[in-house]
């Protein structure tokens, strides 16, 4: 399919959502996938503020980009948070040059294989509801056209979310956000178990957790639940 065709299909699909009965969680996942397909980026992730006013990772095109979202919330640093706080686009042409500004995020982004990071606000006037992060495999800024397409995609999704909130039809989004919160809490609980058993600090515990998840191709949330509920022997994770 040619690019113009793909672009128009993406927008038609998102616009359909605005007039039909739609699942906001699904829409956000499609947005992340559209970004990867249309913009030549390696991955995309979305942070969205929940009903409690806190950011959560709601959608990501890959586990690595989901992790980078989580990591920013964990360590309270990263371009996603800066973008959310200021409502302004944050462009990082080369993550290696941002190591001082966001030490943890920069190192993790690099080791996930990404170099360029571009974060766009999801906002309508003064209301910032979240952020869209794009990760490129090579350093360099997004092309102008790409940046405008990305912002337009983010704008459509923002309107969809605000509309959903407005028309009292937010069941699925509420579920998604609750799951994101529960998952984050379980990860913290599992980090505590690992830290105590292995004599580690919390960052080291998180690193073990992630490594084991990656090595065994397990979702971080499932792994954390197994550790906290005792169905998974934590010494296996510590020995990994």
């Amino acid at each position: 399919m040619c690019r113009e065709r793909e672009l128009s299909e993406a927008f038609v699909g998102l616009a359909d959502s605005l007039v039909a009965d739609y699942d906001a969680a699904d829409l956000l996942h499609r947005l992340a996938d559209h970004c990867v397909a249309l913009l030549g980026v390696a991955a995309a992730g979305l942070l969205l503020s929940d009903q409690r006013g806190r950011l959560q990772v709601v959608a990501a095109s890959s586990e690595a980009s989901r992790l980078l979202g989580l990591l920013q919330l964990e360590h309270d640093e990263g371009p996603g948070l800066d973008c959310y706080r200021t409502g302004m686009t944050v462009t990082v042409p080369d993550i290696d040059l941002a190591a001082l500004r966001w030490p943890v995020f920069a190192a993790e982004t690099r080791s996930a294989g990404y170099r360029g990071v571009h974060v766009l606000p999801m906002r309508l006037r003064d209301d910032v509801v979240g952020t869209l992060s794009l990760f490129g495999a090579r350093p360099g800024p997004l092309e102008d056209t790409e940046a405008r397409v990305a912002q337009a995609l983010a704008d459509v999704a923002t309107i969809a979310i605000l509309q959903e909130r407005a028309i009292r039809h937010h069941e699925l989004l509420a579920e998604q956000l609750q799951h994101a919160l529960t998952s984050r809490i379980m990860i913290e609980q599992a980090k505590g178990v690992l830290a105590e058993r292995g004599g580690l600090d919390m960052d080291q515990a998180f690193a073990r957790l992630r490594r084991y998840a990656r090595d065994t191709n397990t979702r971080l949330t499932d792994l954390a639940r197994g550790i906290v509920e005792g169905t998974l022997d934590s010494s296996r994770v510590l020995g990994a």
Partner: peptide, 22 residues
């Protein structure tokens, strides 16, 4: 207080210290 990560990290540590449920 439910959203502060330290509470949940400490919960995990106490689980391991006492051998109890979360």
């Amino acid at each position: 207080s439910l959203y502060r990560p330290e509470i949940h990290q400490a919960t995990g540590m106490v689980m391991a210290q006492l051998g109890v449920s979360a």
